[in-house]
Design a protein around this nucleic acid. Sequence first.
DNA 1: AACTCGGGGCG
DNA 2: CGCCCAGAGTT
Length: 371
Amino acid sequence: MNEQKRYFSRELLSWYRANRRDLPWRRHSNPYYTWVSEIMLQQTRVETVKPYFERFIALFPTVEALAEAAEEEVLKAWEGLGYYSRARNLQAAAREVKEQYGGSIPDDKAKVSALKGIGPYTTGAIMSIAFNRPEPAVDGNVMRVLSRYFRLHDDIAKAGTRAHMEHLAQELIPEGCASEFNQALMELGALVCTPKSPACLPCPVMEHCAGRIAGEELMLPVKTKAKPPKPELRYAAIVEGAGEHAGKVLVRQRPDTGLLARMWELPHLLAPKTGGLLDLREEEAMGALRHGLQPEGVRLRPLGHWTDAEHTFSHIHWQMRVYRCVIEEAPDAITGGKYAWIGPEEMERLAFPNLFLRLLHAYFAERGQNG
DNA sequence: AACTCGGGGCG
DNA sequence: CGCCCAGAGTT
């Protein structure tokens, strides 16, 4: 190994030992904590994860506790964190670990890798952080650091690039220090070698950073842009209950697979493509709501526009127009359609994505004020 | 290799 | 408002 590499490993490890953050999942050495935190940290920032991790561990302190919980409970604990298949896969894997390995995460790369929701990155993270095995844990952060330090112009959006990075990352791990070193690599990416404005002056490895020396630190890593999300106009109904359902609104549960699987939401539908005049939008929307939900057994009478909401997923942009409605035919007797009347109390049990969480809170707050 | 899957933070 | 993500599963 050359001097540039030895220097990098030595200085980075030393820097980490002096600068490591005190994070909830670092307070105890517990493979289950490492596992849960790494799943939560996929595509998600540390500051966002912290409170979720604390609540999750309080609710499900062990693999067994998670395995024995009801799925709705796990989804509720994940509410607002996004990528909900992570939560379902995590629990499925916890049940696997309980049944197959007596509740202990195996110190075995192939077995860890075979668990649901654990891909190449998380395998490396668990094997190294929890078991100190010299496995690379290459995420976007690590690819950014390595791209800059070694001045690599490979497109990190390409699948093949990660293989190269993994080879390099493994080579850099100091003997017996995989756990600390891999965390150091990610810590540097999070605190110093940041995407937009890297703090090169305080960087512990600046002296031999090829990207910095070439003046290319802002051009690296090379990454092709993702295509923009597809816009979708949607009409949603906020249905006020009457009689025994007074003070409540109608919600429905999404299908078992696909976008926001098994999460709860306001009834809504994709706007028919009509290309109509803007003036006719309200009529068109209310008509679509009135007829569009009938196949599910819900017949509505839209009263008027209530509010608008937008939500961007990675590949879809929802523009949602929400209409106040009253019900003409309840879906009680309809099979398959999962509908429920809920008030603020019932919201505590059901898991909603943030878009609908915000709308429901706004609605109940407004209704509370108006009596 | 391309697509599906949330959400927030930041310049 | 564009751009950044501490990725994995499916096709």
